[in-house]
């Protein structure tokens, strides 16, 4: 059975909510990395520079996840309204086919309902296109995260006594980036599935 679009949109919002929580964890990783880099001094200058990028990336992902979350929630609301207005429109269509003696008195209500359905349908299509574009934008962040993770590993390897701790941080970045990527993949899979 096809999934109702309002369920899909709410599920996408939930995936992005999880991505946002992961990104908050990434921001914390950036703070820990910076504190460690300060303690480690000159051996970790390269790593310290990277922490600024991690921080910035985390803020970008949080901002974008919140935005997509908002778009998805709005979309879910529009889809519910569309479902309700479509249900009403189908009843009106049936009534119209009955050629009732006072059927004309329904004309205004009926046509308001039909135009509302059309308006909502248009809003839904636009919203879905925007969601698709935003998810693609999210992929760019993941590519950046992977670059940062690789650079972090390289910098960690030359950090002397702090190598082990910095390697853990580099691994955290990789793990978090993978988790965020998974949430984006799930969101895209939801968007591409069959809807009713």
């Amino acid at each position: 059975m096809a999934t109702p679009i309002f369920v899909t949109a709410a599920s996408i919002a939930a995936e992005l909510h999880q991505a946002m929580l992961e990104a908050k964890g990434l921001a914390l990783t950036a703070k820990n990395a910076r504190a460690l880099a300060v303690r480690a001094g000159s051996k970790t200058v390269g790593f310290k520079a990277i922490t600024h990028f991690i921080d910035e990336l985390a803020s970008d992902i949080i901002r974008q996840s919140q935005y997509i979350n908002g778009v998805s929630e709005k979309l879910s609301q529009h889809a519910v309204s569309l479902w309700r207005s479509d249900t009403a429109a189908r009843k009106f269509e049936w009534l119209e086919s009955q050629k009732l003696p006072h059927g004309d008195s329904l004309y205004d209500a009926m046509h308001n309902c039909y135009s509302e359905r059309e308006k909502l349908s248009l809003m839904l299509s636009r919203g879905l296109r925007e969601l698709e574009a935003q998810l693609e934008e999210g992929d760019k962040h993941i590519r950046t995260a992977n670059l940062i993770a690789t650079s972090s590993k390289v910098e960690a390897s030359s950090a002397g006594d702090f190598r082990a701790q910095l390697e853990v941080i580099a691994q955290n970045i990789t793990t978090t980036a993978n988790q965020i990527r998974q949430h984006l993949t799930n969101a895209r899979r939801l968007l591409n599935q069959k809807h009713s």
């Binding site: 709410a10 919002a13 939930a14 929630e73 889809a79």
Partner: peptide, 10 residues
């Protein structure tokens, strides 16, 4: 319904 569904699916 819509805000409730969004909240529950989190």
């Amino acid at each position: 319904f819509a805000p409730m569904l969004s909240a529950v699916l989190k």
